[in-house]
């Protein structure tokens, strides 16, 4: 729920309102009305259940076969976002991880290293504060912050509003930094090109087995904080094996954003994706 106005969506802080976390724009989530009625007949004595363009009703048992995808609304918004982004030839990443895995640190390093070559903009998702968007803006990069309030994930409608506020350049890279949470964001398609799960080596090598849904949903795994390898008992081979057991198609990169290790491979892959 949007904690600013109490509506069901998340509040998108406008780009012009840096530092004033209370202000937010609402293009992203119009307030839906309860139901649509697109049929021709009148409604006198209209108290019987009936299907609206779906499967027919069994009148005797009054059972409606709906076979309705519960996430269909989100998927609809995600497809709109995907079309909007593809029309502008924008490559988009949905960065997901548990809190503190190093998403923002990786992202600020990527911006510093790559912004000479390509245009980058960022959608930041957090429950509260614009601290991460402020960190991104400090690099000179354009960013909007979405505060989800009590919400544990970004959904496609929130991102749609953020895209309009951000207005990323044609043929650019858009990075959506999801709320730090290794569970819920796995379920919600945002319309991104690639889902990227970020995992730090301090989290333990069995994380892919403990949170398989996320590792199954992702196309890419970026292992971060590689510079800490000598100090933590992390079995890198076991971690990679677990990740590939859960998702044999996962692309895996190993980096340290702080020390600059392994970034060239990650950037090379990213540039290939953008060129596609």
């Amino acid at each position: 729920m949007c904690t600013t106005c109490g509506c069901a969506g998340g509040g998108v802080e406008g780009m012009a309102t840096k530092g004033t976390s209370g202000a937010h724009v609402h293009e992203g989530h119009g307030h839906d009305h309860g139901h649509g009625h697109d049929h021709g007949h009148t409604h006198e004595r209209h108290d019987r259940a009936h299907a609206h363009g779906g499967r027919p009703i069994d009148v005797a048992t009054r059972t409606l076969l709906l076979e309705q995808d519960i996430l269909s609304k989100n998927k609809g918004w995600a497809e709109r976002n995907r079309g909007w982004l593809e029309g502008r030839q924008i490559t988009s990443l949905n960065l997901m991880s548990s809190p503190g895995a190093g998403k923002t640190t990786l992202l600020t390093r990527m911006i510093e290293d790559l912004q000479g070559d390509l245009s980058i903009s960022v959608v930041e998702g957090d429950q509260e504060t614009s601290r991460d968007a402020d960190r991104i803006r400090a690099t000179g990069c354009r960013a909007v912050q979405i505060n989800t309030g009590t919400g544990c994930h970004l959904d496609a409608r929130m991102v749609s509003g953020a895209l309009r506020a951000l207005d990323p350049a044609t043929r650019s890279l858009l990075v959506i930094e999801n709320v730090g949470n290794l569970v819920c964001p796995a379920l919600f398609d945002l319309g991104e090109s690639v889902k990227v799960v970020v995992m730090s080596i301090t989290e333990g090598e069995d994380k892919p087995l403990k949170y398989p849904h996320m590792f199954r949903a992702a196309g890419v795994l970026v292992l971060t904080k590689l510079d800490l390898l000598p100090y933590v008992g992390f079995d890198r081979d076991a971690c990679i094996q677990h990740a590939l057991e859960v998702n044999p198609r996962l692309r895996i990169f190993q980096v340290s954003a702080v020390k600059g290790l392994g970034l060239d491979d990650w950037y090379a892959w990213l540039k290939e994706e953008i060129a596609r």
């Binding site: 069901a8 839906d32 309860g34 139901h35 649509g36 009625h37 209209h46 108290d47 019987r48 259940a49 009936h50 299907a51 609206h52 779906g54 009054r62 409606l64 709906l66 309705q68 519960i70 996430l71 269909s72 609304k73 989100n74 919400g151 544990c152 994930h153 959904d155 949470n181 569970v183 819920c184 379920l187 919600f188």
Partner: peptide, 22 residues
């Protein structure tokens, strides 16, 4: 925790389809 959002979608989706029926 996302189950709350999922359940809201179920209620909204069904409400849209059943008209005024209980």
């Amino acid at each position: 925790m996302h189950e709350l959002a999922i359940t809201e979608s179920v209620v909204a989706g069904v409400s849209e389809r059943v008209g005024r029926s209980r």
